[in-house]
């Protein structure tokens, strides 16, 4: 288990290569993740999400600098959408973080959301583990808050920061439902623009309706571009972790997340196996043909697949 050992020793290039393997669903990655799992759980994982162009990368850059000043090591996972047509992606978040590049305490990795089996969430969780075992204190996950898979990732972190900008108006209404559940810290960025206070008020009003779980999400003002309001956000990140630990919510939440993760991994493996079996004996194709010709319904077909799946066992081959 060469890779695991090297990773735990703090070898940067092993970390980079391991992330590639995880991203590519390489079976080798699973072996390494198994071996390092015991070394995970120490990092504070933070999701940063919000509408496109809200200033998520700019804020992440500044937050990382501030936390680094406080003596911490930081990983940043920046996720951008993969083109569903070509499978390609332009990952541009590093532009905002250029002067973190040569900071030895910071490691930035850009990921395409890729439409791979098991989904983005599964791979991101793997990458988080790699960073965690590597010894990072904070792991930021930046995603564009629009799709479901992004919300999934955010659910898998300890603290979620929702970045808003002034004057979103209708957008706030639209994402209200999602917001209520997932945000632990709300940041109204670009407070230099008109309407910041109104947006903050609106958010606070909405949050008043949120069920009291012992943590009242703060609504903070920031001008990420000018490094204003950053200390406050960092303080609240630390406070939130304190709260999670003291209220014993951390253990609970992580257990809940692990539950979801196990299901995700199982789902992913099943998908892979279904495809693999299909490659061997065309089972899926044959069933699909039948369903399409109305000779069978999709529910029975699915039962059949599951049955053969159980009969064959789940050996990796």
């Amino acid at each position: 288990m060469d890779l695991a050992k090297k990773l735990l020793k703090g070898d940067k290039r092993t970390l980079a290569r391991l992330i590639t393997l995880i991203e590519n669903d390489d079976p080798h990655a699973i072996e390494v993740l198994k071996a390092i799992y015991n070394h995970t759980g120490k990092a504070h994982v933070i999701g940063i999400t919000g509408p496109p162009g809200a200033g998520k990368s700019t804020l992440t850059d500044k937050l990382a600098k501030e936390l680094n000043k406080r003596g911490k090591k930081i990983a940043i996972i920046a996720v951008d959408p993969t083109s569903p047509f070509t499978g390609g992606a332009i990952l541009g978040d590093r532009v905002r973080m250029a002067d973190l590049t040569n900071n030895p305490d910071v490691f930035i990795r850009s990921m395409g959301s890729r439409g791979t089996l098991g989904g983005l969430a599964k791979n991101t969780l793997g990458v988080i583990k790699a960073f965690d075992a590597y010894g990072m204190d904070y792991i930021f996950v930046e995603t564009v808050g629009v799709g479901q898979s992004e919300v999934d990732i955010v659910k898998a972190v300890d603290t979620t920061i929702l970045v808003m900008v002034p004057g979103l108006g209708d957008d706030i209404q639209a994402i209200k439902a999602g917001i209520m559940e997932i945000g632990d810290i709300f940041v109204v960025n670009k407070a230099d623009l008109e309407g910041a206070h109104r947006t903050m008020m609106e958010l606070e009003t909405m949050l008043d309706f949120r069920q009291d779980e012992g943590w009242k999400p703060p609504v903070l003002e920031a001008i990420g571009r000018d490094n204003i309001g950053i200390g406050q956000i960092c303080d609240n990140i630390e406070k939130h972790m304190d709260f999670l630990v003291k209220s014993d919510k951390l253990g609970y939440a992580r257990r809940e997340n692990v539950k979801k993760e196990i299901i995700e991994i199982a789902k992913g493996s099943m998908e892979v196996h279904i495809f693999n079996n299909n490659n061997k004996d065309n089972q899926l194709e044959i069933l699909a043909e039948r369903v399409a010709n109305k000779e069978q319904d999709p529910y029975t077909a699915s039962d059949e697949i599951l049955k053969s799946f159980i009969n064959r066992g789940i050996k990796n081959d």
Partner: peptide, 10 residues
């Protein structure tokens, strides 16, 4: 004054 940060949308 600080420095300008480029904006890239590709």
């Amino acid at each position: 004054f600080g420095e300008y940060q480029q904006n890239i949308i590709l």
